[in-house]
């Protein structure tokens, strides 16, 4: 297969970026999208040029590192998968493919297609955990958990933290990401103990970091490679409201 690639190149966070066009030929339909970029980079190196920087690691859709905005969609045209799981058979032979980085104020570009997503870490740091130290745990089966609750928690916990939800959202909102973590712990008995603190702290950190708000367009759910549902946002809003109206004035 042959392709024309229009790729965003940007030397560093402060440089002005722009699109460059490249031609690629003889690509196997069975090659993955990132393998296609590998081939392009091999060519660029041989031509003495600097290869395109892009984020990737596990190449099996679980680490959440890859983050390309392809033809106007995070993770490209197929749904329910990450870029690294997409193969060239999803594209028309001879077509032009436009590749950009995630674009959001909270995710500055590092170089070319790489962005800095450490804002997500800061949100988790604010409360995305259950405060239990190593060595304190009671026998695992002494906390029975209804299968339904465990499944709902797992649906939420499947989030890979890639940031496609932010990239897809016109407000660059991180609500789907934050709510997935809030939701996972809110439905589990272990997580209920500090649920009120957690949601308040995580939401306020999210606001501080420059993410936008949710206006219910559901683009995040549509583009999420793990099909995380917007119902978690509803649960988070509920948790947040309860927390706001029932928390004591002074926290201990």
């Amino acid at each position: 297969m042959n392709f024309t690639l229009k790729i965003w190149r940007q030397e560093n966070p402060n440089a002005k970026g722009g699109f460059e066009t490249y031609q690629l030929s003889d690509i196997s339909a069975d090659a993955s999208f990132l393998e296609m970029l590998d081939i392009l980079n091999e060519q660029l190196v041989m031509e003495g040029k600097v290869p395109v920087a892009f984020d990737h690691d596990c190449r099996e859709g679980i680490c959440g590192t890859c983050s390309l905005y392809i033809n106007g969609r995070p993770h490209g045209p197929d749904s329910g998968i990450t870029v690294c799981q997409m193969h060239m058979r999803n594209f028309k032979d001879g077509s032009t493919i436009t590749i950009e980085p995630w674009r959001a104020r909270a995710f500055p570009v590092i170089k070319d297609l790489m962005v800095d997503r450490q804002a997500f870490e800061k949100i988790i740091m604010a409360g995305g955990y259950i405060s239990v130290n190593t060595g304190n745990a009671i026998d695992a089966n002494s906390i029975p958990i209804p299968k339904q609750a465990a499944e709902t928690a797992m649906d939420a916990a499947a989030c890979i933290g890639c940031g496609a939800c932010v990239a897809a959202c016109k407000n660059a909102s991180a609500m789907l990401f934050v709510s997935a973590k809030v939701s996972q712990f809110a439905v589990l008995p272990q997580g209920k103990i500090e649920a009120k603190r957690r949601v308040k702290n995580m939401v306020s950190r999210m606001d501080e970091l420059g993410f936008g708000n949710c206006t219910n367009t559901y683009a995040c759910e549509a583009e999420c490679p793990k099909n995380i549902s917007v119902s978690h946002i509803a649960r988070m809003n509920r948790e947040f409201f309860i927390s706001k109206v029932t928390s004591p004035k002074k926290e201990v």
């Binding site: 259950i130 190593t134 695992a140 906390i143 958990i145 299968k147 797992m154 996972q184 712990f185 997580g191």
Partner: peptide
Amino acid sequence: DQCVAQGVPFAREYGG
């Protein structure tokens, strides 16, 4: 035990 205390959503049977 430690992982369950942290909220790791392991698979469960209907009895919890």
